[in-house]
């Protein structure tokens, strides 16, 4: 556990609490093409390899053979005129987990093409309706208030 402090007094002094660990692991799609037995995770920056291994093996029952790690530097924001660094974003810790016993994992396709196309069609329809509405408005304006600027309205 990352924190050892006892939690502060809260209003009403609730006795029954569930203490969840501060650690978290986020399963992500890898940037590079990689073999199927390797899985990528973004993890809490204070988490060690051993923590990750124990977390996967004891809670989820996934056997881990090896882990390699990479820390990606956060972006620097520079001053537009003077050029010095004004702000730097947080680093991200990435664990590449090698599964044991010839296990494989493929990251699921979260945005498949069928759903994508349907949503794009909806957007197109909506934009067409909007265009039509604008046209209608213009036509009405020309008919009933010819030669009057657009801001002139009640």
């Amino acid at each position: 556990m990352s924190t050892k402090l006892y939690p502060l007094y809260q209003l009403g002094n609730p006795r029954t609490r569930v203490f969840l660990p501060d650690f978290w692991m986020k399963l992500v799609a890898s940037v590079r093409d990689q073999p199927k037995h390797i899985v990528t995770f973004h993890v809490h920056p204070r988490m060690s390899k051993l923590d990750a291994k124990n977390y996967l093996e004891k809670i989820y029952g996934v056997k881990v053979a090896n882990i390699h790690k990479r820390i990606i530097a956060g972006e620097y924001k520079k001053h537009p005129f003077y050029g010095h660094v004004t702000e730097r974003k947080d680093e991200t810790k990435v664990f590449f987990i090698h599964l044991a016993d010839e296990q494989t994992f493929e990251f699921p396709d979260i945005f498949p093409e069928d759903k994508k196309s349907s949503s794009e069609d909806q957007i197109k329809q909506y934009s067409e309706i909007q265009k039509q509405a604008r046209k209608d408005q213009n036509v009405q304006w020309k008919e009933y208030r010819p030669g009057v600027p657009s801001w002139f309205s009640l």
Binding site: S30, R32, D33, Q34, P35, I38, N66, H68, F96, H98
Partner: peptide, 10 residues
């Protein structure tokens, strides 16, 4: 054929 970048392999 394993056309993976060596970094991706570990």
């Amino acid at each position: 054929e394993c056309k993976y970048h060596p970094v991706a392999v570990g």
